[in-house]
């Protein structure tokens, strides 16, 4: 088991009162799983993903990733943990516009102790993996949406993470590009043995996982 949540709750303060975004969510993920988290808008799936990464603090409950206590960790420890163990793939790609593809991929290594050449070779290998080696010196604006997402996936892999958290990775892509990206994630999951948790509200995308978690009003269905 790589990830475990136990009675995870998250409440937001709203002017009309408290809102339960997550309500006693408990589940486990095993190493090598490709879990898709589905649910309607407002069901709490993004809140769950953010909580798992320690990007928002859970109101109560427990999250453990590889025995690391996410809920009670300090900001600094959480940052270190994310850098070493979690890769992120976002709907909007979140690439830095003034960095080339290979520089974007190397970004998480900026504060690592790898040598310059090692960083470069690592990033280049990942660009090869996502079939963008020939675009390594292109800026994001010079790449298509699908290519940008593949650069983002390469960046998520550069620290050899234990877990990839993907938030609607195909949300900005047309259906054929979506399939490419989902296939790429599937390939990474199978070949690199990296556990993936993917939030989506696309039933098609949800089929790519080997396990589904459906959220409804902050509870697991």
């Amino acid at each position: 088991m790589i990830l475990k949540t136990n009675n995870l709750c998250k409440q937001y303060q709203h002017k009309d009162g408290l809102v339960d975004a997550l309500n006693h969510v408990s589940f486990e993920v095993n190493e090598g799983d490709f879990v898709t988290i589905t649910g309607a808008s407002g069901s709490g799936k993004t809140t769950l993903l953010l909580s798992l990464a320690g990007l928002i603090h859970a109101t109560s409950g427990e999250i453990r990733i590889k025995d690391f206590d996410v809920v009670n960790a300090s900001d600094r420890k959480l940052s270190d943990f994310r850098r070493k163990h979690i890769g992120f793939v976002m709907q909007s790609f979140a690439l830095i516009p003034y960095l080339t593809a290979i520089e974007n991929v190397m970004l998480p290594l900026a504060i690592s102790k790898f040598k310059k050449e090692q960083k470069y070779q690592k990033a280049l290998a990942l660009l090869k993996l996502v079939d963008l080696e020939n675009r390594k010196n292109h800026l994001p604006s010079e790449l298509s949406a699908g290519q940008q997402q593949r650069v983002a996936i390469a960046r998520a892999l550069v620290n050899s993470p234990t877990l990839i958290l993907a938030d609607e990775p195909t949300g900005n892509l047309d259906p054929s590009l979506s399939t490419d990206i989902l296939n790429l994630l599937k390939k990474i999951n199978k070949e690199e043995k990296i556990t993936i948790l993917m939030v989506t509200h696309s039933p098609l995308a949800a089929e790519f996982g080997n396990r589904k978690i459906n959220l409804h009003n902050g509870c697991i269905n």
Binding site: A53, L55, R76, S79, D80, R82, R83, L107, A110, I111
Partner: peptide, 16 residues
Amino acid sequence: RKEIGMLRMIGFNKAT
């Protein structure tokens, strides 16, 4: 803001 948020997300701590 988005860029800095992204850097924080991928593991840049406040000190960095």
